[in-house]
Amino acid sequence: QQIISPDQYIKHPLQNKWAMWFFKNDKNKEWTANLKLITAFDTVEDFWGLYNHIQKASKLPSGCDYSLFKDGIQPMWEDEHNKNGGRWLVNLNKNQRQTELDNFWLETLLCLIGEAFEDLTDDICGATINIRGKGDKLGLWTKDARRGDATVKIGQKLKERLKIPVKIAIGFQAHSDTATKAGSTARDRYRV
């Protein structure tokens, strides 16, 4: 009779439950109708089961997004958890879709589910990858744009984990600034 060790059948629980969302741009539908919840998971094994099963971000058509948010937070500014928050934004140029995009996104997912932000986990809402013809964007969303020290520490950790060169700055914008700034981009509240 074969003896199975507990490691072989007990999944590794995550600190938080996370929900993966998919957005597909269909101009004939309302924005919210284009946003679909794929699934929620709370173990390491279920994360990989999902990740290995879905299309890589670099293979998505232009106009699509993936988002990973804590369960109960919708990936939109209007959500109660996001409305006072903002995002660290990493802009990718066209060449980086082939070379960096999938690595950046996976690394960000591992930061979220592995709680890389440690005691600042309560500041974290989720992350989004936007696939766009004019340049893809990675955003790490936090819940309160006024929390300067925490926000800067989160940005530094993200930059370190993505191995973004020190000389390349990334910026953080409050959603309230982005929402009211039609056309051009909002000013950065913080940079690292």
Binding site: Q15, W48, N52
Partner: peptide
């Protein structure tokens, strides 16, 4: 307890999940 997992720990399960 807090469940903080580093990237190497998480990555080792990437290709185990199909069996579970």
């Amino acid at each position: 307890g807090k469940k903080h997992y580093d990237r190497e720990f998480l990555l080792q399960f990437q290709f185990d999940s199909a069996a579970i």
